[in-house]
């Protein structure tokens, strides 16, 4: 009985208002989601441009992009985050100095989005490149035959047609993005994992808070999986039933 009542007492630490730490955890979760969403969007943008560059651009762009994707995918995310974080803020301040402004304090949120986006971009480039290659050639040739320009073909045919092939890979990248935000705890950005560490450290209830944070991450994953299933079904509309890709 004693352990049960002390467990219920410790559960009160999760309440949303101080002295509970629940509010801090939820604020951390919000920051994590903001960074994941922003970084993922930036990664998608880089991915689409990178895939087009790898497939259609000149040899120089192709090889530079190959260097980018290979380097980013071979170095641990933690080191990339530190490198981009310091190098990014340094470069920005040098730039500010150059145009005669005072150095700025870079907002953690923006830096996090930028860093996660650069890492995600390398993976998204490969996913989207593979998906574009899987689109039957005839569809793209048909668009050309109708006199579509390059951009029209991309917008109206290639990108929509590659979506069903890209969605499994892109969905995986979204789940990785939500988990990669935890790495920003190491550079001191107060997202969910760091908030949890602080809450656990000051109350000494380590198990409680880490399990609570794990549950929050799991909820995000489960909801994401539900949404992904819907998006996958939507992207395959028009495909013959039961056809596997």
């Amino acid at each position: 009985m004693d352990t049960i009542s002390s467990f219920i007492d410790s559960l009160q630490l999760l309440s949303l208002t101080p002295p509970g730490w629940g509010g801090n955890l939820l604020r951390g979760l919000l920051h994590s989601l903001q960074i994941a969403l922003g970084g993922y969007s930036l990664g998608l943008l880089i991915g689409i441009l990178g895939a087009c560059g790898k497939l259609y651009a000149g040899a120089f762009v192709k090889d530079s992009l190959a260097c980018y994707t290979t380097l980013v995918r071979a170095v641990p995310e933690l080191i990339l985050i530190l490198l981009f974080y310091y190098a990014g803020t340094d470069l920005l301040n040098q730039l500010m100095l150059l145009i005669g402004r005072d150095p700025v304090d870079v907002d953690g949120l923006i830096a996090g989005i930028f860093v996660i986006g650069l890492v995600q971009g390398a993976y998204a480039t490969e996913v989207i490149r593979g998906a574009i290659l899987a689109v039957p050639k005839g569809q793209i040739e048909a668009a050309r035959a109708y006199g579509f320009s390059f951009w029209q073909t991309l917008r109206r045919v290639t990108l929509p047609a590659m979506l069903p092939y890209a969605i499994p890979g892109l969905a995986n990248l979204w789940l990785i993005a939500t988990k990669d935000t935890a790495l920003l705890a190491v550079v001191g950005f107060s997202e969910l994992t760091l908030e949890t560490k602080q809450a656990a450290g000051s109350t000494k209830h380590y198990m409680l808070f880490y399990c609570a944070a794990g549950a929050l991450y799991l909820i995000v994953t489960i909801i994401s999986n539900q949404l992904i299933q819907r998006i996958e079904r939507w992207s395959r509309r028009g495909f013959a039933d039961g056809r596997s890709i």
């Binding site: 789940l175 988990k179 990669d180 935000t181 935890a182 790495l183 705890a185 190491v186 994992t193 949890t196 880490y210 944070a213 794990g214 991450y217 799991l218 994953t221 489960i222």
Partner: peptide, 8 residues
């Protein structure tokens, strides 16, 4: 697979 390795 649903939680970050750092948290684990």
């Amino acid at each position: 697979r649903g939680t970050p390795l750092l948290l684990q």
